[in-house]
């Protein structure tokens, strides 16, 4: 897809550390995400999953270590530069433009991809290509019927779908989804899984997920994060059979 070597990881974290004051949240973490795979991060609360996402996407700069996207260093870059380098993320707490229509929410990202960032001299309604691509994303996330409604009026699961749609609009090849099914009912979760599977086809996906059903149904590999470090990385089946992981994480869930 990106024309990069398949052996080379899409995303590589090497010796990444992050401290907040005296508290070290990420402790020399190493992780390779292969191009084209769907990779889940699981771990108990406070393991550092959200911090890890914030480090990769540029919300925070790491205290030490290296993060590279397709062999290009992105550690410490600002979020918009990381996005332009080809990595997009969604948020755990829905993070949309509440007063804009669903269509406009998606179009902002499409405009960014087309590089029309500071277009001041042409009405956006005449940009055929941009509007067509927005409709395409709108259809893919199944929100055609809500196109003109203010995003703030959508139901929770519709907002989650919009959140995923916005992540896709900038055309990034590496997608980070932060708990995309959190707070959803069983049917909604099943729908969201189908959606994530189709829209990440041919892309690289890294997601934080608590629901083991989603992890098993969707992901090629799983990394278990405990106390700011990767305890193990493997296929979902082997991870669930891993004694160490059971003790650290799955065992807690069961009890």
């Amino acid at each position: 897809m990106t024309g990069t070597n398949l052996d080379q990881p899409a995303l590589r974290l090497a010796g990444v550390k992050k401290s907040f004051g005296p508290i070290e949240v990420i402790r020399g973490l190493n992780l390779d995400i292969r191009a084209g795979e769907r990779h889940a991060i699981i771990g108990p609360n406070g393991a550092g999953k959200s911090t890890l996402f914030n480090l990769i996407s540029g919300m925070f700069a790491p205290s030490a270590g290296e993060i590279s996207l397709n062999a290009q260093s992105i550690a410490g870059l600002s979020p918009h530069r990381i996005n332009r380098a080809g990595l997009a993320r969604s948020f755990q707490i829905t993070n949309i433009f509440h007063r804009l229509s669903v269509f406009e929410n998606l179009r902002i990202g499409v405009l960014a991809r087309h590089g029309v960032r500071y277009g001041l001299f042409r009405p956006v309604s005449r940009m055929r290509q941009v509007n067509d691509e927005t409709i395409e994303v709108l259809t893919r996330v199944g929100l055609e019927a809500r196109s003109n409604d203010p995003a703030g009026d959508l139901t929770y699961s519709e907002q989650r779908a919009l959140e995923i749609g916005m992540t896709l609009t900038t055309g990034a090849q590496v997608i980070l989804l932060d708990e995309p099914t959190a707070g959803m009912s069983r049917e909604e979760t099943a729908k969201a899984m189908d959606l994530i599977r189709t829209v990440t086809e041919g892309k690289t996906l890294l997601m934080v997920e608590h629901d083991m059903g989603v992890v098993f149904g969707l992901c090629d590999r799983v990394s278990v994060l405990v106390y700011g470090n990767v305890l193990a990385t493997d296929t979902p089946e082997r991870i669930s059979a891993n004694r160490e992981v059971q003790e650290a994480y799955l065992g807690q869930e069961a009890s």
Binding site: A88, I96, L100, R107, A112
Partner: peptide
Amino acid sequence: RLTLALRDNEQRVRFLGY
């Protein structure tokens, strides 16, 4: 339109590449 998006959610605008 981007100006309006900025009013609603500056953080998300940043993560969309602006």
